[in-house]
Design a protein around this nucleic acid. Structure first.
Lengths: 223, 223
DNA sequence: CTTGTATTCAATTACTTCATTGAATACTTG
DNA sequence: CAAGTATTCAATGAAGTAATTGAATACAAG
């Protein structure tokens, strides 16, 4: 094989991975899988895609090496191939935010209006949590919380926040987090909490980004 | 705008960037641009694409925010938008290498046969160079060398290596580098040098990866 | 002002991608 | 064994992508 031929094949292979990420739905599926493994049916429900369509996208992600799968009875569970995929997604997001004005405008118009404050860096939150001066709030659905969450985090899905305010100490700061840096649930939670008089902030990033920084993750349902 | 609408638009924007990288030729153009800014004509020549085709690919990369351009007379010069694009390309490459068996097989069959030794980490090379116990060899074309190179690197394009062996001290180790971790030129250089009795190794990565690690870069033609 | 150079644009053709639909396959339950 | 469930497959039509070709545009030189 010539040098040119080799190079072209190599770049073509790299392009396969990029192409697999070249559709909004597949990126969303990857973000869901970053929270923990899910079945096809679960992914179809949470994404709003048909099962057949979800299956097709997952097959493409599988062929690109971004996810792996395992069978359990009739169900097929998918997961990210590794933490490096989270890193790749983070890198992609950062480039888009920085160099695409459409992206920064979209984020500004929709998210920054909800929370203009800088999010709390992960290592800073870990420090505050260890000092016991903050309440960490996970606003994702329970199954995502169970798959993995920040140590000591309280799980109150956004839809139930108003009904469970009593679970949050009023004399402490609250830092909310979600699936990733642009997950609306964390923004909405902070907005609601501030309206109720809480000192609420957002975490910089979500559970996958936290884990990517090598920070500790708990699993299971809270006692 | 609804939460679902916002999320879908955001993912669609991120997908734009990924899709722009979803073609082997565009990834190759990005690797060339990682060495320094180039004109359309230069990129067409070095990539083997037609000028019109090169222009089309560059326009797509521009729209995706991966490159920027400037005009100088009749020429248009393109460059990467930022170092974060190099990081994104590195991340993509790493995921492909790790999770696509076709990629690791391609690399193994074509590159590892040329050089099975582990490449020298960048920080290690910097140390050795500072101690003056190694010769750093840049085997890229002179214009890429001029745009940026490792401090103290000697520029001998591969095609001229045999004729310029006298420029390399025989009593010192030689570490060769090129455009990136899979640039064949560095592998071929090391192969040739070993055949001539030199103690030759490769750098882990190329000039863009070196710069991404925050290491010093020189510019211009060597005195 | 004309000619040459560099680049971009638009149209075309062929190919690929995407969502849908219905069928096929595999596993579970009664 | 039949019916139900979960998932994948294949075909289809619409939309998008990629290379080529020739034209258009912009700038430079004589």
């Amino acid at each position: 094989m010539s040098t040119t031929g080799f190079k072209q094949q190599l770049f073509q292979q790299f392009a396969r991975v990029a192409k697999a990420m070249g559709h909004g739905s597949r990126l969303e599926l990857l973000e869901f899988l970053a929270q923990g493994e899910r079945s096809v049916d679960q992914l179809a429900k949470v994404s709003g895609l048909s099962v057949a369509n979800t299956s097709q996208h997952l097959r493409l992600l599988l062929q690109a090496g971004l996810v792996t799968n395992r069978k359990a009875g009739q169900k097929v569970y998918y997961r990210l191939s590794g933490e490096d995929v989270v890193g790749l997604l983070a890198s992609l997001r950062q480039v888009a935010e920085r160099h695409l004005s459409d992206v920064s405008r979209l984020i500004n118009d929709y998210l920054s209006v909800k929370d203009e404050l800088q999010p709390v860096p992960a290592t800073e939150l870990l420090e505050m949590a260890r000092e016991g001066i903050v309440t960490v709030l996970d606003v994702r659905p329970p199954e995502e919380y169970a798959a993995g969450h920040l140590p000591g985090a309280v799980n109150i899905p956004l839809a139930e926040l108003e009904a469970h305010l009593d679970q949050l100490p009023e004399d402490q700061a609250v830092v909310a987090y979600c699936r990733g840096p642009h997950c609306v649930l964390a923004f909405d939670a902070v907005e609601q909490l501030r309206q109720k008089g809480f000192n609420a902030r957002r975490l910089d990033g979500g559970l996958p980004e936290w884990r990517l920084e090598g920070l500790p993750v708990e699993q299971g349902i809270r006692s």
